[in-house]
């Protein structure tokens, strides 16, 4: 599944770039994130409990940041595994200044497997968009706090 879109965060690219790679900010913004532990430079392990209304899934996963070009772009690699399925995604986030704020454009591809791939295809697209939106909304709220 291809995923792309953009979201404007109310901070300059430098600060946005840092926040998008800040474990604490990530942990606070990722839907259902319960735990995010740095395991190496730019590598994290996480536990998530993703809840969308009745649907719920526990995932254990890894995040890796690569191809860093401060403050313009970086690559994000995510994988997660749980009883209801697994996902593996990779995408590039491109940051461009927009009137004192930053437009974050994301473009990537996610592979989904297991139960969620087998029975969820009608709603995967809408659900993925929803989770990404929630992430950026929380991130935006965080950006607005004084650092």
């Amino acid at each position: 599944m291809k995923i792309s879109g953009s979201y404007t965060l109310p901070a300059a690219p430098e600060r946005t770039y840092a926040l998008l790679q800040d474990p604490e900010a990530l942990a606070a913004s990722m839907p259902g994130c319960r735990e995010l532990v740095r395991t190496a430079e730019d590598e994290y392990e996480m536990k998530m409990n993703v809840v969308i209304s009745s649907i719920q899934g526990l995932f254990a996963g890894k995040i890796r940041v690569a191809d860093k070009e401060f403050p313009a772009r970086f690559r994000l690699l995510v994988e997660g595994d749980g009883k209801i399925g697994f996902l593996k995604g990779e995408g590039v986030l491109t940051l461009s200044p927009a009137d004192g704020a930053t437009e974050v454009h994301y473009d990537g591809e996610v592979q989904v497997g297991g139960m969620i791939a087998g029975v969820g295809q009608r709603l995967l697209d809408a659900t993925a968009k929803y989770l990404i939106k929630r992430f950026f909304e929380k991130m935006a709220a965080r950006v607005e706090q004084p650092s």
Binding site: I55, Q56, G57, I84
Partner: peptide
């Protein structure tokens, strides 16, 4: 809706 989701263990 809820019962099918529970049977699939998505809920």
């Amino acid at each position: 809706s809820l019962i099918p989701l529970m049977k699939l263990r998505l809920a």
